[in-house]
């Protein structure tokens, strides 16, 4: 399978702290990969590196064969990487629908002048964007609340909206940072099913951070484990379950979704 994302000896340092250390890792096209590890292991930091929020201190990050380590966040998204945030970052003053609409910006044909002139091409594009946004919202059961302020959504729905918003950028790789945090077990299972559904429907590769072992083991084809910024294991769910270092890393630690 061709490699969509490739990390080679990626390291990032914050002062004295090495948050991610020499991580080798890859995601292939259409794959659903889990990324787990105890709190502070560096999972979110790895996402921030892949999406250009941080620049790696050393090492290389390639997407579709192109080095993206020093590219801006928006350019990387333009190449087909989308993400959600662990600490929800919606556009708080916008409606549910507008949060999604804003994310269509990337593929917009009528820009500044189109918005001013408001001709037919502009109007039909706006119309189709709105329709597509609503279709995406429908998949995640949010179409009814399309015109509500996004702040009024429940915590779980805000997380769902983050996924919809990310999908609106038409990614090839979707990074989900604890998308089921704060949800009850039933909701979690439901969300994971949705993630699998969208992954197949849009032909996405997904990299999923999730603390709930059962959930991760259930849907991921492959799992990588981080601890103190290092990758300590990688393999199929069955292999990870047996891995001594992984067991040690989690031993005595409450695995919660806090």
């Amino acid at each position: 399978m061709n490699r969509l994302l490739e990390l080679e000896k990626v390291t990032v340092r914050f002062g004295g702290l090495v948050a991610v250390s020499e991580v080798d890792f890859h995601v292939a096209d259409g794959e659903l990969v889990g990324l787990i590890g105890p709190n502070g292991a560096g999972k979110t930091t790895l996402f921030n590196l892949i999406t250009g929020v941080y620049t790696p201190t050393s090492g290389s990050i390639r997407f579709l064969g192109q080095e993206v380590g020093h590219m801006s966040s928006s350019d990387i998204t333009g190449m087909g990487v989308a993400r959600t945030f662990q600490n929800i970052r919606l556009f708080s003053s916008l409606s549910v629908l507008d949060n999604v609409v804003a994310a269509f910006n990337l593929h917009l044909k009528s820009g500044f002048l189109g918005a001013l002139w408001r001709g037919n091409a502009f109007r039909s594009e706006e119309q189709s964007i709105r329709e597509e946004a609503v279709r995406l919202l429908e998949i995640f059961g949010l179409a009814e609340t399309a015109h509500a302020p996004c702040r009024s959504l429940s915590y779980g729905d805000q997380r769902r909206l983050e996924i919809v918003r990310a999908l609106a950028t038409r990614p090839r790789l979707l990074l989900l940072d604890e998308p089921a945090a704060g949800m009850n077990p039933t909701e979690k299972v439901e969300l994971m099913r949705l993630i699998q559904f969208t992954q197949e429907r849009f032909g996405l590769a997904v990299l999923l951070v999730e603390h709930d072992m059962k959930v991760v083991m259930g849907i991921c084809q492959r799992i990588a484990v981080l601890e103190y910024g290092r990758k300590i294991a990688e393999g199929t769910p069955a292999e990870i379950q047996r891995d001594k270092r992984v067991i040690a890393a989690y031993l005595g630690e409450e695995v919660t979704d806090a």
């Binding site: 801006s72 333009g78 993400r83 916008l94 804003a102 910006n105 918005a115 990310a166």
Partner: peptide
């Protein structure tokens, strides 16, 4: 008003609300 009330113009509001999220959605702040 015309600028702001368009998909293009939602970019202004997105940048205001959360610059990091805007960038992550491919919007160039």
């Amino acid at each position: 008003s015309a600028l702001v009330n368009s998909t293009y113009g939602r970019g202004f509001l997105a940048v205001r609300d959360d610059e990091i999220a805007a960038e992550a959605m491919g919007i160039n702040p």
